[in-house]
Structures are given as structure tokens and as C-alpha cells.
């Protein structure tokens, strides 16, 4: 609760919803992109480059009237595994948890392999999370290929580009 009260001057408090705190600087907009894909109607306030006790600077996101479940939060694990999720009710933090890294992602990302069956059939996606010395790798349950995390954290941008191409 201490961090949140300390930032009330930087970002307006919310009555009910979710505050994602301790997002590494620069990852806030990526998370915003994903949240907008999931719910384009959500009312969201973003704070960038806020002062932080533990990080040199951090991003913070407040979402009105949407109380995250652990599953909602886990979808953001590749962007900010150590971020804190605060569930707010009546201006008070009702529950608080760290996002953490799940053992797998189900129906969160699309497979970067264009020849994977999930890109051609109405079947959901599943990726197993493997931690290696080089970082996090995701292995597709279907095509069995392994990919580095950047191929997933860049997907919103790529989706955006694909959308732009169809619009143009």
C-alpha cells in the first residue's frame, strides 16, 4: 500500500479496478497495447518514468472498473514479470500480488511460425515457458518450435503494422 499512497500525486487514484505497479520503464506502453487489444473500451491511465524506490524509474498503469484475475495478470508476464498487481475497491487495495512467470501461456500469443497449424486452423495456442541462460524461451505445444521472448513481446507492434497495411 505504501508505494501506491506515495504516488497519489503523480497519478489520480481510482475507486475500483486494478493498478499495475513496478513496471520496468519502457514496458508500460507495451502493456497498454495488450490491454487495449483485450478491451478497447477500458478506461486506462498510464504513468511513465515515475520515481521508484526499487527501480531507477518505473511505469504504472491504472485500469478503472476492471479487477484483474491472476489469469489476466499472467498474460502480461513476458512484459513485466516482477510488476505488482493491486486490486482496488473503494479506493483501498483489497488484494496485491506479483505477476510472476507462468509455466505456460494459453491463447495469449500467436505462433511466430507461419506454417504452424495454429495459424491455419481454429485451434487455440499454447506455449511452454523455458528459462535458459539467454532469457525466456517459449515452445509451441503444436509445432514444437522454440522462440525467444522478443518474438512475442513485439507481437502487438507487428499486429499494428499488419493492420496498417490492410488499411493503407
Amino acid at each position: 500500500m505504501s508505494d501506491l499512497s506515495g504516488e497519489k500525486l503523480s497519478v489520480e487514484a481510482i475507486r475500483s479496478g486494478t493498478v499495475i505497479d513496478h513496471i520496468p520503464r519502457g514496458r508500460g506502453l507495451r502493456i497498454l497495447g495488450r490491454l487495449q487489444l483485450k478491451n478497447s473500451e477500458a478506461r486506462i491511465t498510464v504513468g511513465l518514468n515515475l520515481p521508484s524506490r526499487n527501480l531507477s524509474a518505473k511505469d504504472l498503469i491504472k485500469i478503472d472498473e476492471w479487477q484483474f484475475t491472476e489469469t489476466d495478470a499472467a498474460e502480461l508476464a513476458l512484459f513485466a514479470p516482477n510488476a505488482t498487481v493491486n486490486i482496488v475497491e473503494n479506493y483501498k487495495v483489497k488484494r496485491k500480488f506479483t505477476i510472476g512467470m507462468p509455466s505456460e501461456f494459453v491463447n495469449v500469443f500467436w505462433c511466430p511460425n507461419a506454417n504452424c497449424v495454429t495459424r491455419h486452423d481454429s485451434v487455440g495456442t499454447r506455449f511452454k515457458v523455458n528459462r535458459t541462460v539467454d532469457g525466456v524461451h517459449l515452445q509451441c505445444h503444436f509445432c514444437e518450435r522454440g522462440f525467444s521472448e522478443e518474438l512475442f513481446t513485439e507481437q502487438d507492434r507487428l499486429l499494428g503494422l499488419a493492420y496498417m497495411e490492410t488499411v493503407v
Binding site: 506454417n115 504452424c116 497449424v117 509451441c140 503444436f142 514444437e144
Partner: peptide, 23 residues
């Protein structure tokens, strides 16, 4: 020809699926 086709088939079929090559 699609990679992962046999895994997907195995998950939707109640009978055994033997992969004879998926991409």
C-alpha cells in the same frame, strides 16, 4: 503440410492418431 497438425488432430480425435509427418 502444417507443423503441429498431428498434435492438433490427436487432441480432437478420440481414436489414436499416428503422425506420418507434419511439415
Amino acid at each position: 503440410p502444417h507443423e503441429g497438425a498431428a498434435r492438433m488432430a490427436a487432441e480432437v480425435a478420440e481414436t489414436p492418431v499416428i503422425n506420418c509427418g507434419d511439415g
